[in-house]
């Protein structure tokens, strides 16, 4: 390709400029050391900051009303939450297998594992909807209390990511190559990881 820079810079002293020749690979500032597409890691880092901020906000808000939070928390179904933890952990395992399969160029196998991952994601969402359903039936909504506002927001944001994750898995299943599969499953693992932190903070601590 022709040089992009304005031609003016090609003075006779251009030898003085010490452009270090840039290899394309070091251009992501280290992100390329991580599996999958570096931009996915920009997203993952951003997501972790957001969820982290929400969990800390939740803890801070709890200081203001420990009894109220504990009381509201009694309405949460910890067994459902625990089951969902298991579901997501298992889906994460399947995602690992999908990556292993594509490394062996076993596309069909890879897709099967991705499908398994996605099915468990759907199970997670169904359990989540059942949880929301019982809350709503009990007259508990988004604005019932600070606890429930944050509960719905945080778990809702998380569930939304599961939905997006399903989309991502679908897309990489259509174009399965190593980078794509690693990128898609990295997003999925992030969702998994966020949940194992959300669960104790919102469901268990009191």
């Amino acid at each position: 390709m022709e040089p992009d820079q304005d031609t003016i810079a090609q003075h006779d002293d251009s030898g003085l400029m010490d452009h270090d020749p840039q290899s394309a690979s070091d251009a992501w500032g280290g992100l390329e050391a991580l599996p999958g597409h570096p931009l996915m890691w920009v997203l993952i880092l951003s997501e972790l900051v957001v969820f982290g901020a929400f969990l800390l906000t939740f803890s801070a808000a709890r200081i203001g009303d420990p009894a109220g939070f504990a009381n509201d928390q009694l309405h949460l179904d910890r067994v459902m939450g625990g089951i969902n933890t298991l579901v997501l952990l298992t889906s994460g395992l399947f995602a690992v297998f999908a990556v292993r399969a594509i490394k062996k160029d076993a596309v069909l196998q890879c897709r099967v594992w991705l499908a398994g991952t996605a099915v468990l994601g759907i199970v997670f969402l169904i359990v989540k909807l059942i949880e929301y359903g019982t809350k709503i039936d009990a007259g508990i909504g988004l604005e019932t209390s600070t606890f429930f506002t944050l509960y719905y927001l945080i778990t809702g944001f998380h569930a939304l990511h599961v939905v997006m994750g399903l989309g991502v898995l679908g897309v990489v299943a259509i174009w399965p190559n190593l980078t794509n599969i690693e990128t898609g499953t990295a997003f999925w693992h992030m969702i998994d990881m966020v949940w194992v932190l959300v669960f104790p903070v919102i469901y268990l601590l009191r």
Partner: peptide
């Protein structure tokens, strides 16, 4: 930056994508 600094387009584009993602995300 591409025009004035002479840094490779490829490098600049990566930054651009990161900045765009962060802007929309937040």
């Amino acid at each position: 930056m591409i025009k004035m600094t002479g840094v490779d387009r490829e490098v600049v584009e990566k930054w651009l994508y990161v900045m765009v993602s962060l802007s929309l995300f937040t």
